[in-house]
Amino acid sequence: MRRIHILCVEDEPEVLEAVVRDLAPFEEVFPIEATATADEARRVVRDVILPRGELGLAICDHILPGEDGVSFMVHLHAQEATRATRKVLLTAQAGLQATIVAVNQAALSHYLAKPWNPDELVAVTRRLLTDYVLETQTNLYPFLSLLEADRLTERIRSGPLPGDE
């Protein structure tokens, strides 16, 4: 089965660990990849994630060594394979200008300020992944236990029954 991945980009190892730790409950269904730079993230999306599945959610810091997070998100949004990917900025430092670019050119889905509240991070992840699977998946049953079940069952109920033509 092609799995839907979560990608985290953050250059501070301890902070990256913390994000991954907070999202660990999702990993049962959504494998998490963690990278320290936008450059590494590009390679991981190309060589690791897309060959095996798709990218459902990208959570990026803005200030990174080399290419910044917003520019990486704009790159993701420009690629066909990652256009539908939900994009979250998790940052202590993104000026108005960068945020405007993120919203307008990368279709930023959510902005989380550091230090984040883990419950909020989990809730945002759950909501955005639900949006993503509703938009891209036909079989929603594998996600019922982890994502927003009411929205998923609503869709399943209103859709055709298996075997319907």
Binding site: L16, E27, P31, A34, E40, V48
Partner: peptide
């Protein structure tokens, strides 16, 4: 380093396919 972490995780996942990813 994230690269090394990724490699080792992949190796271990191959060795122990039944263990949960976290």
């Amino acid at each position: 380093q994230t690269e090394i972490q990724r490699q080792r995780t992949a190796e271990l996942a191959r060795l122990f396919p039944d263990l949960p990813r976290p």
